[in-house]
Simulated assay, not measured.
Amino acid sequence: MQFKKEKLELGKEYPIAGEIAGIKEIEQISIEALKQSYPDNVRPVLRDAHPKHHGCVRAEFIVHDDIPNELKIGIFKQPCTFTAGIRFSNNKVQDDTKKDVRGMAIKLFGIEGEKLLERQKEEKTQDLLLINHPVFFIKNVQDYVEFFRSRQLSQGNLPLKFFFLNPNPFKWHLQEFIIGMVMLNKKVSSPLAIQYWSSTPYKLGDRAIKFTAVPSSKNLISSVAQTPDYLRQAMIEHLNNQDASFDFLIQLQTDAKKMPIEDPRVEWKSPFHKVATIQISRQQFDSPQQMEFCEHLSFTPWHSLPEHQPLGGVNRARKQVYEALSESRHNLNNVVVKEPTKEEFLELFG
């Protein structure tokens, strides 16, 4: 007997069987790995993902007034300028000359309305997380569990077992391996000079979107010496002398099959619409106090209004895992898990 496949709907999630148990296993593996990596005599405890930051900068997130009416939802519902803190990072603690995934995490301040996370409903922040690649290399929670199991056995190194060591070649994760290699092999001159993508989908009201931040051509600078921390130095040299900016664009899901919610390995093919400008003024951001503040910040796509809820299995896993890791990391560092206020941020970065 043949079963008729369920017709996919725009903006709708389709969780797989066993997802809740899988997310719990990822959480347990992640917490155990964090504790093993940071025994009592090793502090501070760094993030599991993107632990090396080049710095946090002060920015303005300027929502435009000429965007299509169908996009005027949530933080985009009306023209507005939000204060923002932006953390630029590497996925690993290592020499910047080594190939790695780069991240851009945006925290908007002054966001009114009840938020998704139960313990932070009254906070006035909204996070937007991006990496310098348009797609993610994991399809769903089941594959995420396999990846974390393999990474545990490889002690944090590239888990080749996940990609290739299944006896059945038809079960190799070749597509995932190719995406991962492309992500790791991009040449970066400055965190301010590259494009970033959400890679995973999010709500925009009843619709689904992805988003991207595109650097201005003026963000390019002459190359700096390839030191272990040259990406931070590139930011310092640029922002000592001139402003930087990014265009922020969103992309609507227009085909539920060709632009899936539950498979972030697939790049969506639909137009991007500019909805905001990120303006980063000249500033100094690398004092010890600023770098410590940056270290204690917590970012998750679930620091969010319901209108921008993260979608898909990878994001559903992030909700529980990121929250547990943040709480564990802050507890081990004897730091209270707390969203900063706009005033606290501007006191250091204003």
Results as ranks from 00 to 15, higher is better:
Ala208Tyr: 07
Arg265Tyr: 13
Met291Gly: 02
Glu292Arg: 14
Ala225Gly: 06
Glu343Ser: 11
Phe246Cys: 05
Leu249Gln: 15
Gln309Ala: 14
Leu165Trp: 12
Phe61Ser: 01
Pro51Lys: 04
Ile209Gln: 03
Leu128Met: 13
Phe137Asn: 14
Lys342Gly: 08
Thr212Trp: 07
Glu327Pro: 02
Val321Arg: 07
Glu146Gln: 12
Leu297Asp: 03
Gln195Pro: 05
Asn69Cys: 02
Leu239Ser: 06
Arg119Tyr: 15
Ser287Ile: 04
Asp66Met: 08
Leu116Gln: 09
Arg329Cys: 02
Lys171Ile: 09
Ala49Val: 14
Phe163Thr: 01
Glu339Asp: 10
Pro79Val: 04
Glu19His: 03
Phe299Gln: 00
Val141Arg: 10
Val224Asp: 04
Met181Trp: 10
Arg102Ser: 07
Glu267Ala: 15
Lys139Gly: 01
His330Ile: 01
Val93Asn: 12
His273Glu: 13
His330Pro: 06
Glu347Ala: 15
Tyr38Ile: 01
Leu220Phe: 09
Ile209His: 06
Val266Asp: 12
Lys258Glu: 15
Leu174Val: 15
Arg43Thr: 05
Leu239Thr: 07
Pro301Ala: 06
Val336Ile: 15
Arg43Tyr: 10
Tyr230His: 15
Tyr322Arg: 04
Lys319Glu: 05
Asp100Gly: 04
Ile23Met: 11
Ile209Leu: 09
Val42Thr: 14
Gln290Cys: 05
Asp95Ile: 04
His133Thr: 03
His53Gln: 15
Val314Ala: 08
Lys274Ile: 07
Val63Pro: 04
Ile250Cys: 04
Leu117Lys: 15
Lys187Thr: 13
Lys161Asp: 10
Asp127Phe: 10
Ala17Leu: 00
Phe349Glu: 08
Thr200Gly: 09
Gln78Ser: 09
Asn219Pro: 03
Ile194Phe: 07
Thr97Asn: 10
Leu8Thr: 07
Ser326Gly: 10
Ser190Ala: 11
Met235Thr: 05
Leu128Ile: 07
Tyr14Lys: 09
Asp143Cys: 09
Lys257Ser: 13
Pro167Tyr: 00
Asp255Tyr: 13
Ser326Cys: 11
Gln120His: 09
Gln253Arg: 13
Gly312Thr: 10
Glu295Ile: 00
Lys5Val: 10
